[in-house]
């Protein structure tokens, strides 16, 4: 098991290195250059060239990539072209907001989706099952932006229960501010996870070992949670791991709509301003989050179902 975890982490690091190189190329290939953006339309070509040279943008691409990867590995992501602060510092200030948003969204998705799916599978084809099915499809169909905007209109503007913008200070305030954006990002996944868990639970509940557990007189609750759900939850863990990527996408919207100072908002602002070091840094942070999430999902799966690691080797 330990070896498996080490291998998964090593693989995750390799993916990250590749992602860093690719990202650098993509950002450089995007239209517009940072010199014009930073120096304004009045800058002469000579000044632009000097600026580019200062940033190393005149070097051949492989050299630039190698230099970038090297500096990333040494913890140097460059300097924010606006604030003149190190990018790592800027990221460190923004990242917690996004991480907490994604975590809260995951808690909502799994915390509601798994029990709902489980209940639907156990009471298959009942009214209850159909109601959960209908709810799931509705949740899947509504884009997070709509939920964000209507949630804000209803709970902040009309009812005044929840704060509309910002991230808050202190634990209670922060959690309070987290509710609306986290629901916006996570609620669509509730339906998706519920459907997924229902399908795999139905399959697992018909397995031979479930009948055997009943034949040994085990209580139904114990059978459902200890025997069936354990196996049935594996695909959900994988999907949620990958889902973090999609949630990061939704987080960009959520952070803009709710004016949360997270990575998504940072990324959006940096792209508009062609603030290359920050853009790259933000995307890198998001990529790291995604790779960490999928790696964690694989490791979790191996812990839940020991056969999983063999199927991945």
């Amino acid at each position: 098991m330990f070896g498996y975890i080490l291998r998964r982490i090593a693989l995750g690091c390799a993916v990250l290195l590749l992602a860093i190189s690719t990202l650098y190329v993509i950002v450089q290939a995007a239209p517009g250059d940072p010199a014009s953006a930073m120096l304004g339309p009045k800058a002469t070509p000579a000044i632009k060239a000097a600026f580019a040279e200062k940033l190393g943008l005149d070097q051949p691409m492989p050299v630039q990539i190698a230099r970038y990867v090297g500096s990333v590995l040494s913890g140097d992501l460059g300097t924010d072209l606006r604030s003149r602060r190190p990018v790592t510092e800027v990221l460190a200030a923004h990242a917690p907001y996004t991480v907490e948003l994604i975590l809260a969204a995951l808690v909502i998705a799994a915390g509601l989706g798994i029990p709902l799916g489980c209940a639907a599978a156990v009471r298959r084809n009942s009214f209850f099952d159909r109601a959960i099915g209908l709810l799931s499809v509705s949740l899947i169909s509504v884009p997070p932006v709509i939920i964000a905007i209507y949630g804000m209109l209803l709970f902040s503007a009309a009812l005044g229960w929840l704060p509309a913008i910002g991230a808050g200070e202190g634990l209670a305030e922060r959690l309070h501010h987290l509710i609306l954006p986290a629901v916006a990002v996570g609620i669509g996944w509730v339906g998706y996870i519920a459907r997924l868990v229902r399908a795999s639970m139905i399959e697992v509940l018909s397995a031979n070992y479930i009948r055997n557990a009943r034949a040994f007189g085990l209580a139904e609750g114990r059978i459902v949670y200890r025997y069936a759900l354990r196996t049935a939850v594996a695909p959900t863990v994988t999907v949620l791991g990958v889902g973090v990527g999609y949630m990061l996408g939704s987080a960009v919207f959520a952070e803009i709509v709710f004016a949360r100072p997270g990575i998504g908002k940072l990324m959006y602002d940096a792209v508009i301003l062609r603030n290359y070091p920050v853009t790259l840094g933000a995307v890198l942070a998001a990529t790291t989050l995604l790779v960490a999430a999928t790696t964690l999902a694989d490791i979790l799966n191996a812990l839940i179902d020991p056969r999983f690691k063999e199927s991945r080797e």
């Binding site: 070992y209 034949a215 040994f216 007189g217 196996t231």
Partner: peptide, 24 residues
């Protein structure tokens, strides 16, 4: 009935590959 299962009346099922839970 559940109180009898496993204590007074027991089963062995056909396929040993699927008769035990994989995650425990």
């Amino acid at each position: 009935l559940r109180a009898l299962r496993g204590t007074r009346i027991s089963y062995i099922s056909q396929d040993p590959m699927t008769s035990l839970a994989p995650g425990l």
